[in-house]
Design a binder for these strands. Structure first.
Lengths: 358, 358
DNA sequence: CTGTTAGCGCTTTCAG
DNA sequence: CTGAAAGCGCTAACAG
């Protein structure tokens, strides 16, 4: 074995390369960085040594020295959700375009774990930490997030809240929202304009996460504007998944159908709702109209096709990265550190005018 | 400003903490690691300084010194695919359970980018690099992967091929497959047993990726076993998405329906196929039977419900992590570095006996 | 053009 | 129990 060979099991180091090429470490470093004149012959020798030893630079040592590959951290509940996956894709895309690598971490909806993940990201030296998904917006949460925002800011990083309300004017955090409440208002208004008066809200959560709260606010505002009843009884709880939406609505229907339309809080819930309605012998939209929220791909296959609210999820992810990184690079100013993306209703076949008599 | 305060914009370092607490860096380090006796009073002082300075340890410096948070890298085409997202979830889960953080990277199906991502992961010092998704299994690919496997092995890491064929006995790589060909054989056999003879294969790709090739092999073997015609004309090309499957099948139907069943290469393709059949005035399963592959969640909403092949995607991800990390930790032996998970047919409502006459 | 040197922030012997 | 000091692998002055 050549003396310049690295120990087996351990990766080759810059020193190994230097020894094998018969040059100094600095020269190897310069060949790698390619930002300094190096003689052709020397460069060739170094490159050969690199190839022979299958050398790759150690990111950690680089990062320590200041020149680390800046990463973008993206924290979400669960990769399996279609809408969050879309945001993740937007983030990945924009991060890649800017030569950043992207770290995706999941929390399984546990705020505890969210904190620990953010901490890890800070240790990691991420250039931006993007958080997405609804949360329970209480004092404890705001305080904690504000702390994180300041910590991140102090380490030269940036907190981005995506699809969550802003923390306040003095908190150094970027906020990328979509018009959650407006989308709900628009889609429910449409139902009301079609003569529906009793509209079931399906998918209220016990905790009151921001996403659901916003959609419910839009629902309520629309009802108020049309003088429709806003009974507590028309708000139906359900967990954030298809199965629970199905079960809850089936149960509800068994106790009598006192509504002519259903506003499902997500397309996934709408899928469950559609099955529940159909399985109960109700026809959509003739007997009951149905609308969803999110406009995710899988909803394409619902029959009748679902009227829903389109959310620009991918754009949300791209914007988050753009603003956060742009800030450090002078592309965007701190005045632009709040974006509100529009939503719009997509009309398909799951709604019809309310039946005249029931 | 206290002299012990770190420069603004830069994170606090261990030295800052030490100065503020009036102890040596070593002591702080020991408090952090909690693996050495430290006097109660001293520990309290240190902890307070840590809190006051909002200190977090620098991962890179730690990694450099040997005690880095070992990461698991997961490389896939696109987070938006439901099946890959499931694998990703399995990986996340198992990695988290073992205290590893998980780095998810996407390649957009570009082999070039796959290589560069793997390289980055090696620089990063990932404990395992998990690759998933079909590939074109040619000599160039095998050679390249073999190289990567050896490189990773030499750096104390491990390459895991997930849902891809193994590279060979002498290549230090872990392989976690599912019975791709067997699943296709089983589901096509079922169609044949129901009297279907002319079964359209929908979703052949021009390149011949391993996933499609395996499913096609199962299809062919089943046809052969039942003496059914294996005409080239019954193999229909289509890209890996719903829209193309729809278009291709519509076009095909316009030229005449010379088949009684369709085997769609994925559930997503099946969704497109179902729409194409329905839009062409054909009833599933009365006129044409339809089967898919993957058993992903979104397929739940197809009507009629789709008969398909279940693939244990989440388990695939968990197994990948378990084997790769277990190897280094002595839990699994190198003999177990190949796993073949089973698949099975899930019978729902999209198939029926072949019509007697057409 | 190339080599020497001084750290980046942390852990870990080895001496108190 | 605590501190001093040596490096992990790399880059960036500073000298040749």
């Amino acid at each position: 074995m050549t003396p310049a060979d690295p120990a087996p099991g351990a990766p080759a180091t810059l020193r190994d390369v230097a020894e094998r090429a018969g040059v100094s470490m600095a020269t190897v470093s310069r060949v790698l960085a390619d930002n300094y004149p190096v003689a052709q012959r020397t460069r060739q020798r170094v490159l050969r040594a690199i190839r022979e030893l299958d050398y790759v630079a150690n990111t950690h040592a680089r990062a320590l020295r200041g020149r680390g590959t800046p990463t973008v951290a993206f924290v979400l509940n669960d990769v399996r959700g279609a809408s969050f996956a879309q945001v993740a894709h937007g983030v990945e895309e924009e991060a890649a375009r800017r030569g950043r690598i992207c770290l995706i971490c999941t929390t399984q909806g546990d705020p505890e774990r969210e904190l620990s993940v953010v901490r890890t990201m800070r240790e990691q030296g991420a250039g931006a930490v993007i958080l997405i998904g609804g949360v329970v917006d209480d004092a404890a949460y705001r305080e904690q997030m504000t702390g994180i925002a300041h910590s991140l800011d102090a380490s030269g990083s940036r907190l981005v809240l995506c699809g969550r309300p802003p923390l306040g004017p003095d908190v150094p955090a970027t906020c990328v929202e979509y018009d959650n409440e407006g989308g709900a208002y628009a889609v429910v208004s449409r139902l009301l304009a079609q003569g529906h008066r009793r509209i079931l809200f399906l998918g209220a959560d016990a905790e009151g996460t921001t996403t659901v709260a916003g959609r419910m606010a839009g629902y309520r505002r629309a009802l108020a504007d049309y003088d429709a009843p806003a009974e507590e009884g028309l708000v139906q709880r359900a967990d954030f998944n298809r199965a629970d939406a199905y079960e809850r609505l089936r149960g509800r229907i068994r106790q009598g159908v006192d509504f002519t339309a259903v506003f499902a809080v997500t397309d996934i819930a709408a899928a469950g709702a559609l099955a529940a309605l159909t399985d109960s012998g109700l026809t959509v939209p003739d007997d009951v109209s149905l609308v969803g929220y999110d406009d995710v791909d899988p909803a394409t296959d619902l029959r009748p096709q679902l009227t829903t609210v389109h959310v620009p999820y991918e754009e949300l992810g791209r914007t988050a990265v753009r603003l956060a990184l742009g800030l450090r690079e002078g592309e965007s100013s701190s005045a632009e550190q709040h974006a509100l993306l529009g939503t719009h209703v997509v009309i398909r076949d799951s709604t019809a005018p309310a039946p005249v008599a029931r």
